[in-house]
């Protein structure tokens, strides 16, 4: 396990370094530079030069990338153009909102999806299996921001059951939870269907395997076999999918935060784009990339911990 962990972590570090370098190169290759983006086309050459120097843009590209990594390791992602506050501080201030949203969304949808998938597999071809099947396919691919807009329209504006804007008063936990209901519903909905299908498929596969037949032959109660043997293994793909799906969750969070005017990483990026606050945009993108790489790494490690075949295969 230790060898696998080291190898997997090493790969993640390499991917992170490559991703950031690539991001840097792409930003430099495309037309439009951060300085004109921030100052506008009419800025005086002196002003441009000053900002270029402040951001280190007058250095050769490899030096810039190197400096960026050194600064990043020190936790320095540059400063906000307007307020001069450190970007890392701003991002950390918004991060909890996004993580709470994503966490709540997965928190309600994964257990429900696993339960539905499990029931569907055990009662195969029953009414509930068919119903789950149709509902899953229907909700899987509907974009989260459409669900956000529709639920905002129906449940907040028309029916007024839930609040429409914001994240609730700080320090008032019930109020904050109340504000989380609709956004978390919108992001989680498609995951219920997705996870249900996934768990159903892997449950059916596992229930047909030899060790389950052996367990049955020993006369173990069916419920025991389902929950202790089959489900434990059938959940594994779900972990991978949530890990890899972190990019989707983050994307969905961007839209949902805008729709419900919630603070968070997504709203931060959009607001910084509209105000041309370039360092904050870069910082937020960087952070979401880091979260994504970390989540895929963790899900791989959990899988390896649960399934010795994975960690011994490489």
């Amino acid at each position: 396990m230790l060898a696998y962990t080291i190898k997997r972590l090493g790969l993640s570090v390499v991917i992170t370094i490559l991703a950031i370098t690539l991001l840097f190169l792409i930003i430099h290759m495309i037309p439009g530079d951060p300085v004109s983006t921030m100052l506008g086309p009419k800025a005086s050459p002196e002003l441009r030069a000053a900002l270029e120097e402040k951001m280190g843009l007058n250095q050769p590209l490899p030096v810039q990338i190197g400096l960026f990594f050194v600064n990043m390791l020190r936790g320095d992602l540059g400063v906000d153009v307007f307020t001069n506050r450190p970007v890392s501080q701003i991002v950390f201030g918004q991060l909890p909102y996004t993580l709470a949203l994503i966490g709540t969304a997965i928190g309600w949808s994964a257990p429900l999806g696993i339960a539905l998938g499990c029931v569907s597999a055990v009662r195969r071809d029953s009414f509930i299996d068919r119903l789950t099947g149709i509902l899953s396919v229907s909700v899987i691919a509907v974009p989260a921001f459409v669900v956000s807009l529709y639920s905002l329209l129906f449940f907040a504006v028309q029916l007024k059951w839930f609040p429409a804007i914001g994240a609730g008063k700080s320090g008032d936990l019930p109020d904050q939870i109340w504000h989380l209901v609709l956004p978390a519903f919108a992001i989680g909905l498609s995951w219920v269907g997705y996870i249900a299908r996934l768990v159903r498929a892997s449950m059916l596969e596992i229930l047909g395997e030899n060790h389950i037949r052996t367990a049955r032959a020993f006369g173990l109660p069916e419920n025991w076999i389902t929950f202790r043997y089959a489900l434990r293994l059938a959940i594994l793909p779900t972990i991978t999918v949530i890990g890899v799906g972190m990019g989707f969750l983050l994307s969905a969070a961007v839209f949902t935060e805008i729709v419900f005017s919630r603070p968070g990483l997504g709203k931060l990026v959009i607001d910084s784009i509209t105000t041309r606050n370039y360092p904050v945009v870069m910082g937020s993108v960087l952070f979401s990339t880091l979260i994504f790489v970390a989540s895929t790494t963790i899900s791989d490690l959990i899988n390896a911990l649960a399934d010795p075949r994975i960690r011994n295969s490489t």
Binding site: L23, I30, G32, P34, G247, M282, T296
Partner: peptide
């Protein structure tokens, strides 16, 4: 494969927003 994994590590929407921020 490494190239694929690297590209996949950009969350699409965030990446798109960063590029749009520069080129409009």
């Amino acid at each position: 494969l490494l190239f694929f994994d690297t590209i996949r590590s950009f969350p699409t929407v965030m990446f798109a927003l960063a590029v749009v921020a520069l080129v409009g």
